[in-house]
Amino acid sequence: MDLRIFTEPQQGASYDTLLRVAQAAEQLDYNAFFRSDHYLRMGDGDGLPGPTDAWITLAGLARETSRIRLGTLMTAGTFRLPGVLAIQVAQVDAMSGGRVELGLGAGWFAQEHAAYGIPFPGHRIDRLEEQLAVITGLWETKVGERFDFAGTYYQLTDSPALPKPVQQRIPVLVGGTGPTRTPALAARYASEFNLPFTSPEQSREAFARTRAAAEERGRPGDDLVYSNVLVACVGSDDAQVARRAAAIGREVEELKANGLAGSPAEVVEKIGRYREAGSRRIYLQILDLDDLDHLELIADQVKSQLD
């Protein structure tokens, strides 16, 4: 089981905070550091010091880390035109030496769009499908050839389709619990199918739908990586678990029910249930970004049992 670190900096984090977490994750031998793509805090609080842009952050981290993979869960399709995003991601891939992954979603948080004057259009899943087609099409076009696309929402004419990523294929993540469109998009465009905050039982059903969608396209179901996002709250004893839950404004029993919380043994057991459901990768949602000891505990007493 591959454990990755996932952060939510819109809740209140500077670039320097994210850098400390990413470098700690690299030193502790986690495989990847991911972040959300939001411009407005969710829930209570002032959100200080304010939002950081996902791809500017990852560009900086690309130059200040050396091994760890870097990506988004999920880049909002409403924030950037697909041609521009393809250029940005390819450039950050080059800056990192080929360590970038792109999670791309339709965009959903209407309030942050209103707060920063970003259009929030309808038909976002239809737009997402065209965005995936444009981005992957630009990257896959051979050097010296041209790319054209005539969609309902996006039109590209005589594009040189540059720059190219360093990686032969940047991993693309598609995720969500939609029963039909999402599995179909993952089967067509993605390297990985991701589920946010679902139970092992729900995950098993969603993974099966995506496998079936892939096989309908003539693609082996095992060609995709199946993964989960789950909040993490791990402690060496009950008191430490309670302190970490309080620090993020959550209740221990709720976290145990819906996330990965409790002692290392409890968390290893629950991860085993996700493994049995078909998950091969878990993104640990770390909400207290000042608690680097939390990352160390998980690496030493949870990750070490799963390698």
Results as ranks from 00 to 15, higher is better:
D148I: 08
D148Q: 03
D148P: 15
F149K: 01
F149V: 00
A150L: 13
A150I: 07
G151S: 12
T152K: 15
Y153L: 14
Y154T: 02
Q155K: 14
Q155L: 09
Q155M: 13
T157W: 05
T157D: 09
T157E: 12
D158S: 11
S159Q: 11
S159A: 14
P160L: 13
A161H: 00
L162I: 09
P163G: 04
K164N: 04
V166F: 05
Q167P: 14
Q167L: 11
Q168L: 15
R169Q: 14
I170H: 04
I170L: 14
P171R: 04
V172R: 01
L173I: 10
L173E: 00
L173T: 02
V174A: 10
V174Y: 00
G175L: 08
G175N: 10
G175F: 02
G176E: 03
G176Q: 03
T180G: 12
T180C: 07
R181P: 07
R181M: 13
T182S: 11
T182A: 06
T182K: 06
A184W: 00
A184V: 05
A186E: 01
A187Q: 06
R188N: 09
Y189K: 02
A190N: 05
E192P: 14
E192W: 01
F193Q: 04
N194T: 03
L195W: 00
L195P: 04
P196E: 09
P196W: 07
P196M: 09
F197L: 15
S199E: 13
P200W: 13
P200C: 10
S203K: 02
S203V: 06
S203T: 12
R204M: 11
F207P: 00
F207Q: 02
A208E: 15
R211G: 06
A212Q: 07
A212P: 05
A213R: 05
A213Q: 06
E215D: 01
E215G: 02
E215H: 01
E216T: 11
E216H: 13
G218M: 13
R219P: 03
P220C: 10
G221C: 09
D222N: 15
D222Q: 10
L224D: 03
V225Y: 04
Y226W: 06
N228M: 12
V229W: 01
V229M: 13
V229P: 03
V229I: 13
L230S: 00
V231M: 09
A232C: 09
C233W: 02
C233I: 08
V234P: 05
V234R: 03
V234Y: 04
D237E: 13
D237K: 11
D237Y: 05
D238N: 12
A239I: 10
A239C: 07
A239N: 11
Q240G: 06
V241F: 09
V241L: 12
R243W: 04
A245I: 11
A246L: 14
A246V: 05
A247Q: 01
A247G: 07
I248F: 08
R250T: 01
R250K: 06
V252C: 10
V252G: 08
V252S: 10
E253P: 12
E253I: 05
E253T: 12
A257T: 02
A257H: 06
A257L: 15
A257W: 00
A257Y: 02
